[in-house]
Amino acid sequence: MTKRLETITGEKLFELELKESRVIIENILPSGLHILAGSPKIGKSWLVLWLCQMIATGETVWGFKTTKGKVLYLCLEDKLPRIKSRLMSITENASEATAFATETLPLGGGLVAQIENYIINNPETMLVVIDTLQQVRTLGSDNISYANDYKDISALKSISDKYDIAIVCVHHLRKMKDDDPFNMISGSMGLSGSADGSYVLVRDNRMSSKAKLFITGRDIPDTELRLEFDKVNCLWKLIEHDAYDEFENDEPIIRAICDYIREKKSYYNTSTHLLSELAKCGYKEEITPATLSKKLRSHADILNEKFNIYIEFIRKSDKRILSIRDGNDTNDSNIA
């Protein structure tokens, strides 16, 4: 007899108190399975080693907060002397929260069990880095297929989902250029399509110290970071973040909400009601309540840090409420 589908109604789903995915680096790295791709020798390993150090010590990454925890770095193209040299180049204080391994079993041959065993014995783990993905795959380059790529990624994704951690697989780019940097990730669409996030590091030119880091994912906004490699300190430094420019120029709904809250000082009602209030103030763009809530979630940190506006999402049995207040206003009686 065919097993019946397990279903849930939209109404019941809205009533559930579900845990949201953990954020490892705000606006940049949520929990899940991610691909970091770039050309050979571009500096991918320097970048992930520094990210490991920042998460292990709880320090910010380009000004973004991190969730402090243990890190497992599978550096499979290097030996311990090189890892030690690189670590000493980026920090004076190595952390006990970072563990390194230079050899593992392959995917499909015990790697998943090795990673899971480490996490079970180290429940504070936040990040696992596999550098590089090709080193743990048993297939040769001539056996690349969507099915095989999807199978490999799904095996790792199952761990990230089960333990709510981030797994970053360092990978290579195709030699062929493309207007969409994510199309340059080596392999089939099974890799990037099944991953929760993709990161592509591209230098301005081979001899340049400047590069762009393109970011896309299911739980993070599409972002482009302008970076420069500091050869003295061996660090990728942030020189420009386009998300702020996008906020200023391409998000009129957020600007309209800022103006509204500056005048009203506070708001406590649904997204639907807020859209009707903004329409009364002259805002004309058509946008759904769900899209408005999504935009507010993605811009909550920027609104807080740049404009001192605080947003809280409150769940009630029959509806979801937005609580927005002007942090510059000291009169709490304005809050409905």
Results as ranks from 00 to 15, higher is better:
S21C: 02
R22T: 13
I28Q: 05
P30Q: 01
G32N: 04
I35C: 02
A37K: 00
G43E: 01
S45N: 08
W46P: 06
L49Q: 14
A56W: 00
G58K: 02
T60I: 09
G63S: 01
G63K: 03
L74N: 04
L74I: 01
L76I: 07
L80Y: 12
R82D: 15
I83F: 04
R86C: 08
L87Q: 12
E96A: 05
T98D: 11
F100W: 10
L105H: 10
L107A: 01
L107G: 00
N122H: 13
E124D: 15
L127D: 08
Q135Y: 13
V136K: 06
L139P: 00
S141R: 08
S141M: 09
D142L: 08
Y146Q: 10
A166P: 15
L173M: 06
K175W: 02
M176E: 15
D180F: 05
P181K: 00
N183P: 11
M184S: 05
I185K: 05
S186D: 12
G187I: 00
S188Y: 06
V200D: 03
V202R: 10
R203V: 02
N205W: 11
N205Q: 09
R206H: 13
F214W: 08
I215S: 07
G217P: 00
D219G: 10
P221T: 11
L225R: 02
E228C: 09
N233G: 10
K237I: 13
E240N: 09
E240W: 13
H241A: 12
E246P: 00
E248P: 04
D250Y: 09
D250H: 09
I254K: 03
C258T: 14
C258K: 15
Y268P: 10
N269H: 06
T270W: 06
L274I: 09
L275C: 00
E277I: 01
A279K: 02
C281D: 11
C281I: 10
T291A: 07
T291P: 03
T291D: 09
K295Y: 11
L296Y: 11
L296P: 00
R297V: 07
F307Q: 11
R315V: 14
R315W: 12
D318Y: 10
D318N: 14
I321C: 03
I324A: 11
G327D: 05
N328Y: 15
N331Q: 12
S333V: 12
I335S: 06
I335Q: 09
